[in-house]
Amino acid sequence: MLLVRAIIRPEKADFVMKEASEAGFQAVTKMDVYGRGKQKGITVGDVHYDEIPKEMLLFFCNDEDKDDLVRVIMRTARTGEGNYGDGRIFVSPVEDAYTISTGKQGL
């Protein structure tokens, strides 16, 4: 089982969630986050923005579904030209999961 964490542009979040759902990845957690990547923020005129708003989407999937989910996120979160700030995807192993209401183990 894997956790796929996508940190993307806010304007892309709903589209990514819609496309992921249509591809069979309905369960998602969405959070507002702030940060910067390798570009160290952006400067507009005399003002430097160090914390840029992003959305973080959390998906859990089986190991064999990872490539499909990552492809959906890459395709839908990327701007036309592929620009700095389009985001990052992180994949981490998950040891276990439990449904609180039923006590069921796994996804």
Score class of each variant (00 low, 15 high):
A27R: 11
V91H: 04
Y49E: 04
E81K: 14
A23Y: 07
P93E: 13
G45W: 00
R88N: 14
Y84T: 08
E19H: 03
S101M: 15
D14T: 02
K66S: 13
D96F: 01
Q26W: 06
V47N: 01
K38I: 12
G80L: 04
A97Y: 08
R71M: 10
V94H: 02
L2M: 04
D63M: 03
L107N: 14
L107C: 09
V33E: 04
E81M: 08
E81Q: 14
Y98K: 11
H48Q: 12
T99V: 15
K66H: 06
V47Q: 15
G37C: 05
D86E: 00
G82S: 07
E22P: 02
K12W: 00
G24Y: 04
A6D: 11
V4C: 00
V4M: 08
A97G: 10
M56D: 08
G24M: 05
L107P: 10
F59K: 08
L58K: 12
Y84E: 10
A27K: 00
E64I: 10
G103S: 11
G106T: 15
T102V: 10
V28K: 09
L69I: 01
A77K: 05
D65K: 07
G80E: 00
V28G: 06
S21M: 06
M17D: 04
L57K: 00
K40Y: 12
M31E: 11
I89P: 07
S21G: 15
M1V: 12
P53Y: 06
E22I: 06
K18C: 01
M74G: 06
A77S: 13
P10Y: 03
D50N: 15
Y84S: 03
E51P: 09
K66Q: 13
P93D: 14
K30C: 09
E19T: 01
V33F: 02
L57D: 07
L69E: 09
P53T: 12
P53S: 13
K104W: 03
D63Y: 08
G103P: 10
K40A: 10
V4S: 01
Y34D: 09
Q39I: 05
R78C: 02
V94P: 05
G82V: 09
P53A: 09
Q105S: 14
V28I: 00
E51A: 14
E11Q: 12
Y98T: 08
H48W: 11
K54E: 13
V4A: 07
R75N: 09
G85H: 02
F59M: 08
Y84M: 11
K66W: 08
T76Y: 13
V44G: 00
R75I: 11
I73H: 04
K18T: 11
R36I: 00
E55I: 11
D68G: 08
R78W: 01
Q39P: 04
E55G: 09
D68F: 05
T29H: 10
A27F: 13
N83F: 12
A13Q: 12
E51S: 14
G80T: 01
M31Y: 12
G80A: 04
Q39K: 11
G85D: 06
I52T: 12
D67E: 10
